[in-house]
Lab assay of single mutants.
Amino acid sequence: MTYKLILNGKTLKGETTTEAVDAATAEKIFKQYANDNGVDGEWTYDDATKTFTVTE
């Protein structure tokens, strides 16, 4: 399945997608991606749209 991440960081904003077997796997990938890019904030997930959002 395709999952989407919306980044609302102070210095980085944008979107990315990943292919993952489930939401938990996608979350791990996205949290590593956000960490690698210096984004740390409040996480939400919308199962209907398979979208994670992180807001600093």
Rank of each mutant, 00 (worst) to 15 (best):
E56Q: 10
N35I: 14
Y3D: 01
T18I: 15
T17Y: 15
Y3M: 02
T44L: 07
A23S: 08
D47H: 12
F30A: 01
Q32V: 09
T49L: 07
A48D: 12
E27W: 11
T49H: 06
N35V: 14
Y45M: 02
L5H: 00
N8T: 08
N37H: 15
G38V: 04
E15H: 11
D47M: 09
D47I: 10
D22K: 03
K50A: 06
W43D: 00
I6F: 07
T16I: 14
K28Y: 10
G38P: 01
K10Y: 11
L7T: 06
T49N: 09
V39S: 03
K31F: 07
L12F: 15
T2S: 09
G41W: 06
M1N: 15
D46N: 11
V54M: 05
T44H: 12
K13W: 10
G14Q: 14
I29V: 12
L7Q: 03
T11H: 12
T11D: 11
G38I: 05
T53Y: 13
K10M: 12
I6Y: 08
L12V: 12
K4M: 07
D36I: 10
Y45I: 02
Y33D: 01
E15I: 13
T17F: 14
A34R: 01
L12W: 13
E56D: 12
A34N: 03
V21A: 14
L5R: 00
M1F: 14
I6K: 06
E42W: 12
Y33A: 03
D36G: 06
A26M: 01
T25W: 08
F52H: 02
D47K: 09
K31L: 08
F30G: 00
L5I: 04
E15V: 13
Y3L: 01
T49F: 05
Y45T: 01
T25P: 02
D46E: 08
Y45R: 02
A34K: 01
I6S: 04
G41H: 02
A24K: 13
N8H: 11
T49S: 10
Q32R: 11
Y33W: 12
V21W: 11
Y3V: 02
T55F: 07
E27G: 07
K10I: 12
G41D: 02
Y45A: 01
F30Y: 02
K31E: 04
K4D: 03
G9K: 05
K28M: 12
A26Y: 00
I6P: 00
A20L: 02
A20R: 02
D46Q: 05
T18G: 03
I29W: 12
T51D: 01
E56V: 08
V54K: 01
I6N: 04
T53H: 06
A48S: 12
V54P: 00
Y45E: 00
L12K: 12
K50I: 03
A24W: 09
Y33N: 02
Y33H: 05
A48N: 12
V39F: 11
T11N: 12
A20F: 03
K10S: 10
I6V: 11
T11S: 12
G14S: 14
Y33M: 05
D22T: 05
A24V: 10
K50Q: 12
V54N: 02
K28R: 13
Y3A: 01
D46F: 04
E19Y: 15
T53A: 05
A26I: 02
G38W: 05
Y3R: 01
K31H: 09
N35F: 15
F30E: 00
D22L: 04
M1H: 14
G14E: 07
A48P: 08
D47R: 07
N37K: 15
A20E: 03
T55E: 07
T44N: 08
D36H: 08
V54T: 04
A23N: 06
E15W: 14
A34T: 06
T51F: 03
T25G: 08
V21G: 10
T17L: 11
A26P: 00
D40L: 12
K31W: 08
T2I: 14
N8L: 10
G41A: 02
F30D: 00
I6M: 06
T17D: 05
T51Y: 03
K10R: 10
E42I: 15
T16Q: 10
E42S: 10
T17R: 08
D46K: 04
T2R: 10
A24S: 11
T55N: 09
G41Q: 02
D36L: 12
E42V: 14
A23D: 06
T44P: 00
E27N: 06
V54R: 01
T53F: 09
K31S: 04
L5Q: 00
G38S: 08
K31M: 09
T2W: 12
E19T: 14
